[in-house]
C-alpha cells in the first residue's frame, strides 16, 4: 500500500483517539443539545464510535476491495 494510504489511516486513528480524550472531548462537554434523549457528551462518544467504524471500513475496502486472496 502507498505511503498516502498509511498516512491517511494513521490520521483517521489519531483523530478518532483525540476526539475521545483531552483535548477533543472538551468541546463536547455539555448536556445540551440532547440527541436521541442522551446528553451531548454521551452522544459524542457514540458518534465517534460510529465514525471510527465508517473510516476503518473505508480503509478496509480500499485495501482489500474485491480481492479475496490477500
Amino acid at each position: 500500500m502507498s505511503k498516502t494510504y498509511h498516512f491517511l489511516v494513521g490520521l483517521h486513528f489519531t483523530v478518532c483517539t483525540l476526539a475521545m480524550i483531552w483535548p477533543g472531548a472538551l468541546i463536547a462537554n455539555r448536556i445540551e443539545p440532547t440527541v436521541l434523549g442522551m446528553p451531548f457528551l454521551m452522544f459524542w462518544y457514540i458518534l465517534w464510535m460510529g465514525l471510527l467504524f465508517v473510516g476503518t471500513w473505508i480503509a478496509y475496502t480500499v485495501r482489500h476491495g474485491g480481492d479475496r486472496n490477500v
Partner: peptide, 17 residues
Amino acid sequence: AFYILAYLSLVPIVIWS
C-alpha cells in the same frame, strides 16, 4: 464512565495495526 466506552472502541486500532 465514558472512559470505558472510549477505550473499548479504540481497541480495533490495535487489532488493525
